[in-house]
Design a protein around this nucleic acid. Structure first.
Lengths: 210, 210
DNA sequence: CCATGGTTTGACCATATGGTCAAAGAGACG
DNA sequence: CGTCTCTTTGACCATATGGTCAAACCATGG
């Protein structure tokens, strides 16, 4: 698969630095133009390296993209992994929402890279969806279903709850431009978003004592 | 601007048929590959027309894209326009959510086209955002703020309420692949989604009698 | 200071792509 | 049928793009 730099040798300092620079630049470019919309030259410029030089470190444009995506899925799922079945239901969920929102704020490019990929049919990460995302979601939704059955939170469809958390939080990264176009260029939407989302999930999930 | 077919003449039957066919095919292609990821040949194939033939009806690839986008914004805002300041607050909002969800279901390609455009920085519709979207949103958010002030619905940030409606409903179109990957290929998520969203907004917006 | 192996690049190639054009092909209509 | 306009296309062009390669370059350890 990886033909470039294939030897079983430790990476040079230069190698480490340049691969990092390339991935950083590629994240910028891919997240704003999508895979097909990005060119190797563009990434090269952004990284301050020549095109052949890029292809010395990565065997192809797709290899760069893959490197980004495979590193991504793991990080992306961390907040969900942290959802603790032993914890207090509502705070656990609110915490998850909060962490997810924080990820949108701190890693908007990663969010957009992911969004681009999914919208366009997820051709390159279908596998990861089945292998990593789905099992984890199944597990955590079971936990939530348990909480509901125990009357700890108000009844809702666990999977759609999950979808709603994703869409609501990622919206602020993916549709960033639109949000700013409406709220004003120099408004920081995140503090208000956090309040809003906490309110939303609290009101929706607090059990109604009859 | 439009140099092709410029005459002040009525459109032929053939012209009407072919422009429609082209736009239909282009919607398919653009919505799944983004602007730069789509090729005129691809659209031509999908439409059953040769590339030069396409360019007989539209002066360029971008002209096709523009035609789609400009037609889109109007349709897209219809549900929001229908939000009636004189109506019953909660039902009005639930109705808006419902109509928006229906649009996701019936026009997922339009939703993805829009999403692609926004994620990639909205280079081609920035103008429409400022000219059409923002004023309408401002107006309707004022209405909602009024309802809140009158105690008709529980207090929430009107703009973020708007964002949440968009993200929650459009998610089912834009992230369709992911949703189906998790719920199973042949599940129809929409009925459950409608129930879920109605619950969500009802619980969040029903005023708490103290 | 030289040799060795990692690093960089200019020149190059094949293919893809947006777009043009002249000429050939329908359609409508007197 | 003949003519005029609208439609379609094969051939073509300039440019962009992913990728290759041999040659030059540089860092470093002996």
């Amino acid at each position: 698969m990886t033909k470039t730099l294939g030897k079983t040798r430790d990476k040079t300092r230069i190698q480490r630095k340049n691969t990092a620079t390339i991935l950083e630049a590629a994240l910028d470019v891919f997240s704003t133009h999508g895979f097909r919309g990005s060119t190797v030259d563009q990434i090269g410029n952004a990284a301050g390296l020549s095109k052949p030089n890029l292809l010395y470190y990565f065997s192809s444009k797709e290899a760069i993209h893959n490197a980004l995506l495979s590193g991504l899925m793991d990080t992306w799922l961390d907040p969900l992994r942290a959802l603790d079945a032993q914890g207090d239901p509502l705070p656990e969920i609110l915490n998850y929402v909060c962490r997810k929102l924080k990820m949108s704020r701190e890693f908007p490019r990663e969010s957009r890279l992911f969004a681009n990929e999914i919208i366009q049919g997820a051709p390159r990460i279908m596998g990861a969806l089945d292998a990593e995302l789905r099992p984890l979601v199944d597990e955590k939704c079971a936990v939530i279903a348990g909480w509901i059955a125990a009357g700890k939170i108000a009844p809702v469809h666990p999977y759609h709850l999950m979808f709603s958390i994703w869409s609501l939080t990622q919206h602020y990264a993916d549709f960033d431009v639109q949000v700013h176009r409406i709220l004003g260029q120099d408004t920081d939407p995140y503090p208000e978003a956090e309040v809003y989302l906490e309110t939303l999930f609290t009101r929706m999930l607090t059990p109604q004592t009859i």
